[in-house]
Amino acid sequence: MSTHTTVTNTTPTWAGGRSPFNVSYGKLMMWIFLLSDAFTFSSLLVGYGAIRFSYSGHPVTPWPDPALVFNHFPGFHGVHLPLLFVSLMTLILIISSVTMVLAVEAGHRKDNKSVLKYMLITIIFGSMFLGCQAWEWSQFIGEGARLNENLFGFTTEAAAKAGNLKLFDHVHWDMAADRTPGPVPFASLFFIVTGFHGFHVFSGIVILVVVYINALFGTYERRGHYEMIEKVGLYWHFVDLVWVFVFTFYYLI
């Protein structure tokens, strides 16, 4: 430890001349940005809840059951596997989150090599998540969902068929006989909310790559601190946090 003597300073926290929150300017601003972003996402999710609720008990176009819509898994075409693929996406994002926080921790120890290693893993897993989302979008679009169109309404016979579906059952929907137009907001809200989240993941990856290149050239070693990793880390964990709620409201409920 240092040889300085510890002096108790009795100046009040808010009298000026010190940082009341004991965080740097940049980190505080990142927190405030994330707070505003949290309001944006909560508005979107509450709006989703309100619109979904307004369709409950609708006789013509009831809200589609997510289990019947998001039931694909790569390599298992036509097999009824609800929730499996999104759970895999969640796992990927949790792993990327823990490697990000390990990079932050390595930055606290000023260990440039570990920072680089963990950031690279984070970038790879983040890209994997984006790839998964692209695959899911292409499935969804392939089955007739558009921003202003949704073919996930079921005819009476198709609904009866869907009611008996069990895990691993083979399912084939006849687009002409089984499908009718469903509630349009189902598709548009899916595209808007997961798209907005995916855009956050994408920009997170871009920022991660920029910071990775900086770290590669020793910028933070020269600067003497790894605050930038912490700021990117905050953003990345926020993206994970939003996914927790998107996962809950879109796929689980």
Partner: peptide
């Protein structure tokens, strides 16, 4: 909570 116990010689703010 309202007071700090830290080394005031450390650095200028």
């Amino acid at each position: 909570m309202f007071e700090h116990t830290e080394n005031i010689n450390n650095e200028e703010y």
